[in-house]
Write a protein that binds this DNA or RNA. Sequence first.
DNA 1: TTGGTGCTTGACGTTAACGTCAACGTCAAT
DNA 2: ATTGACGTTGACGTTAACGTCAAGCACCAA
Lengths: 131, 131
Amino acid sequence: MTAAAKERVWTVGELAEDLGVTTRTLRHYEAEGLVTPRRSGHNRVYTVRDRARLRLILRGRRFGMSLAECREIVDMYDGAGSSEQRQLTTLLGRLDEVAADLERRADDLRRTLSEVNDVAAQCRRRLAELG
Amino acid sequence: MTAAAKERVWTVGELAEDLGVTTRTLRHYEAEGLVTPRRSGHNRVYTVRDRARLRLILRGRRFGMSLAECREIVDMYDGAGSSEQRQLTTLLGRLDEVAADLERRADDLRRTLSEVNDVAAQCRRRLAELG
DNA sequence: TTGGTGCTTGACGTTAACGTCAACGTCAAT
DNA sequence: ATTGACGTTGACGTTAACGTCAAGCACCAA
């Protein structure tokens, strides 16, 4: 038996506060199919799992992923447990494509960061000369 | 004397083709103050330097930087040659902030990439079992 | 029972980053 | 001299990702 550990849940307001976004954002993500919180009557109830998905999504957003891309990735996380060979194969192909894309972006980011640090170093040298 | 090496120049169409964007994008970037190509009469003339700036900008766009952020960074690259201590100090402060921000984004990207690779590995294991 | 707080669903507004015409100039080639 | 190919400036359209109301329900406290 999986122990019925009373896992924590959140209301929209609580979770928005926790994640540092507005309730509007959470409702928007739901409308776009990125999360599907349960309902307690009329009200949304976010579980630990919902929160985890949202954190992944918000992390993706920070380095330029669109909501559509975020949704695809979190959905792939779920599909990885499949038992159908056909499913797993196409999923794997897509995962590799996504990984390659992310690596390109990481490279772009790394180069930009490197240049920014170079410019900063140059500033420091000039300041030392003037000091 | 700096030799008057006839450096290559581009028209909008040529440069757009070269950079893989539309001419509309280049004109938009100009309207937003990210580049300021010279004019040959009525027509835009992009220099090697303009092209370099644009490549930096497009690279930034790929990992989620806004046009405003891109503009600030390329502008900072220019300001680094200043001789005014006051200027250099504030510039340096900003550069360090930007670098810190980029490092956070890089970290987010790295974690996401790592997870995607984990899921892919999981797929491969399951496929091996089913094989 | 009257607030106040927090939830709900619309529905319209906004911003960024372009796309997509329209209307016009210009220069080389037919 | 007219046809294209390429350039120019408006100006309006579009998409994504929310912001910002409005109107209404639910429950708790004074």
